[in-house]
Design a protein around this nucleic acid. Structure first.
Lengths: 219, 219
DNA sequence: CTAATATTCAATAGATCAATTGAATAAGCT
DNA sequence: AGCTTATTCAATTGATCTATTGAATATTAG
């Protein structure tokens, strides 16, 4: 049956993509890449893996078509091969949240403040930010900010937030964002800001989700 | 670092879901389940796997939260655990089509008639069908038709199409659909219908995609 | 040209996964 | 109760995957 072979081949190709995503570290790499282009050793550092190991994982992702790379000088820069990869990751996240009880519990335990933080939808933030009503705060590391961020956002990496609190206007509301819906940086930032009496909320989702909605990005 | 553990745990859970989808047979099972609820042996038959084997694959899918089951009498019926699982599969398909050159070639080779078949978008079909302008033809096996189909669709399984050609009205256009965008049944049906001079097109996507758009289903 | 940096390749051992087989459980039928 | 059907469990073998290590390649700097 040639049509059966077609079907098997096709599903095997789909499976190859899923297999590329079937490892925690590779998913972490994908999340970092969703923030912007990165070199191999930057990814190795941030993920805590060895360089050779990181390189091999990246190659698996590349063979599955999830990432692409370009060589500039001595460095090789990897990037997601498209927005649809971000969309795939978002789908995966959603299924996990809805149907994997463990994930739900984990998220509730760690981000138990979740509901009390009143996440701001992307569309609403865009309106209020362009009207100058809020300060948009990017709490990701500087390199991630530099390779793309929300329009008008200021960058104070979470690690430096305590020292640089004076940089934020205290009379405007702050909306913080980070890497994505399960990144703890924005959660923690909002808590820290509120501790010192600054009105703060977090964006629903992070930069990848913002891009997925087709909203503008500045760099 | 407790926040790092949280991240690792979370991504490991996501990876479990991807791992469940990282096997061709399991993806096939998911596509069949996207047509409706099925018992283990029905799935074993249609997938060509042994029953024990099928059962074990289904259990992996269940542990990943992708499917759910209920026991009725001596049979256990499995189903997708939600529409978001269909959405995840659709995302996977899209990434494969866009970024995996092999898939593109495979699809072009097999469904080379693809573009000439002028697929009908779901929204358009709904309008024209409710206006009585087209006959909607479901070419999937009878069991799949019975567990849910497009409103007003008639069912002639592809295998029986040749013998039952007389059942279709020759003066109305026919729109055929099957399991999904890469299922060959609707393609082949359209070709066969055109051979005998009947005006035919195919629906863009299949029943799962129809459901995903929130359109009504009859059973 | 030589040294240093960034990345990839190759080989290894330990772990996990897949398909098969036969037995065990559980529900209905006679 | 015994028999049949549907599903799951358990154990095996062969295959594939992961992390680590050290060497090989390529590009830039001195």
């Amino acid at each position: 049956m040639s049509t059966d072979n077609f079907k098997h081949d096709l599903f095997n190709h789909f499976a190859r993509i899923a297999k590329a995503m079937s490892h925690g570290y590779r998913l972490e790499l994908l999340e970092f890449l969703a923030q912007g282009e990165r070199s191999v050793d930057a990814l190795a550092q941030v993920s805590g893996l060895g360089v050779a190991n990181t390189s091999q994982h990246l190659q698996q992702l590349r063979q599955a078509g999830l990432v692409a790379n370009r060589k500039q000088g001595q460095k090789v820069y990897y990037r997601l091969s498209g927005l649809d990869v971000s969309a795939l990751l978002a789908s995966l996240r959603k299924v996990a949240e809805c149907h994997l009880a463990d994930v739900d519990r984990l998220v509730d335990d760690y981000l138990n403040i979740k509901d009390s933080l009143e996440p701001v939808p992307a569309g609403e933030l865009l309106k209020r930010a362009s009207a100058g009503l809020v300060t948009v705060l990017d709490v990701r590391p500087a390199e991630e900010y530099m390779s793309g961020h929300l329009p008008g956002a200021i960058n104070i990496p979470f690690a430096e937030l305590k020292k640089r609190l004076h940089e934020v206007e205290r009379d405007k509301e702050i909306v913080a964002y980070c890497r994505g819906p399960h990144c703890v940086l924005a959660f923690d930032a909002v808590v820290k800001l509120r501790e010192v009496g600054i009105s703060a909320r977090r964006l629903e989702g992070g930069l990848p989700e913002w891009k997925l909605e087709g909203l503008p990005v500045e760099s």
